[in-house]
Design a protein around this nucleic acid. Structure first.
Lengths: 110, 110
DNA sequence: CCTGCAAGCCTAGACAGTCTTGGTAAAGGA
DNA sequence: TCCTTTACCAAGACTGTCTAGGCTTGCAGG
């Protein structure tokens, strides 16, 4: 389980969270779990990164939060994508694909 | 020329610089210019990011520096990749492709 | 010759996002 | 009753980028 490098690319967490909420509302830890699972354990979201990100997104109006009860019968805060959040997600994906294209050009060495 | 988002992905600059030095030594501004050109103007490296990054890389032993004279007949500091730098570049590319694979998995939404 | 501009290097401080480390509360099983 | 797990939360350190400045020097224009 050696980890020499970060589990995340700085600046992508917001996008990943929005994406994880695309189909259905989830609570905090479930979002982190989902990102980890879908990425086949490549990505890992620390709680200390997760919650600040959620507040950020909520403050921007991209997600809304409501208390509910988790599958394990614990109280949990469920986050839901707003329509502004969907727009934001689209914009971030666009930006991501643009920048990675630039990086790949350099790495392919023209 | 609207720029709402960063010109760089946080944490990739070191890799890009190493890559730009892969074939031949270059001086600072030439490195930034090359990254910008090869990426077709998608990426842009600010000087305030560039020089700190160069010192970092030099301190790690991944590049070495020597004063020389540029094409424009100005004194300039030429940076050269060391063999440790080549290893580092390979490692960073490996890490980059791994993480982007993870992100792409999430974005493709499994 | 003098002036101005561009090339090239450099630094300090602000800032943003992540990570580390700590904590709380409550459900459920032993 | 106690322990573990789930779930949320906060403070501070840290790292890397950006903003905004500044310095020197070669060369072109007048």
């Amino acid at each position: 389980m050696a980890k020499e490098k970060p589990d995340l690319v700085y600046g992508t967490l917001d996008m990943l969270i929005l994406k994880a909420l695309q189909h259905e509302p989830r609570h905090g830890l479930a979002i982190a779990d989902r990102i980890q699972q879908i990425s086949k354990d490549i990505l890992h979201v620390e709680q200390g990164s997760l919650y600040p990100a959620l507040y950020r997104l909520e403050a921007q109006g991209w997600i809304t939060a409501a208390w509910g009860v988790s599958d394990n019968n614990r109280k949990a805060r469920y986050y839901k994508l707003t329509s502004a959040g969907r727009k934001q997600l689209a914009a971030e994906q666009e930006h991501w694909s643009r920048i990675t294209k630039g990086i790949d050009l350099v790495l392919a060495e023209g």
